[in-house]
Amino acid sequence: MTDEAAIARERIERLESLAREAVQAGNEARARSYVRRARRVAERHRLRLPRSFERSTCDACDTYLLHGHNARSRTQSGHVVITCDCGAQSRYPYD
């Protein structure tokens, strides 16, 4: 991994923590901008977002999801179904 990619990964991790803090503080617009910026950094450096980050964001509206705050989690026949306040759903199998 090059130095640029390592720096990009660190920046993505930092943006994820900032987005989480912003949602907890009630500033969803700022959290949304952090999520968009992290996705842009990953695209620019051709990196995958960490699994935790992918599963904590809504693909439709770029919101950082906090379960019980702006997202609902349900289990359904071997899958976890997460529903955002915007109505978008994401499904993934149990880990």
Rank of each mutant, 00 (worst) to 15 (best):
M1F: 09
E4S: 10
E4N: 10
A5S: 11
A6Y: 07
A6R: 15
A8M: 05
A8L: 03
A8Y: 04
A8G: 04
I12A: 02
R14A: 15
R14M: 13
A19H: 06
A19P: 03
A19Q: 04
E21L: 13
A22M: 11
A25T: 09
A25E: 15
N27M: 07
E28N: 06
A29W: 09
R30N: 05
R30P: 00
A31C: 10
A31F: 08
R32K: 15
R32D: 05
V35T: 05
V35H: 04
R36Q: 15
A38V: 09
R40Q: 14
E43T: 09
R44A: 14
R44Q: 14
R44S: 12
R44D: 13
R44C: 02
H45V: 02
H45N: 11
R46S: 14
R46N: 13
L47C: 06
L47F: 02
R48K: 14
R48D: 12
L49C: 01
P50R: 03
R51L: 13
S52I: 06
F53Y: 06
F53A: 00
E54S: 06
S56R: 04
T57R: 00
T57G: 05
D59K: 10
D59W: 04
A60R: 15
C61M: 07
T63N: 11
T63W: 01
T63K: 02
Y64M: 08
Y64E: 03
L65Y: 04
L66T: 03
H69M: 10
N70H: 07
A71W: 04
R72I: 12
R72T: 14
R74E: 15
R74G: 02
T75C: 01
T75A: 10
T75V: 10
T75Q: 14
Q76F: 11
Q76D: 14
Q76L: 11
S77D: 15
S77Q: 12
S77L: 12
H79T: 10
V80Q: 06
I82C: 02
I82N: 01
T83S: 14
D85P: 00
D85N: 09
C86R: 08
C86N: 08
G87F: 07
G87M: 09
Q89M: 14
S90Q: 15
R91N: 08
R91Y: 08
Y92G: 02
P93T: 12
Y94T: 13
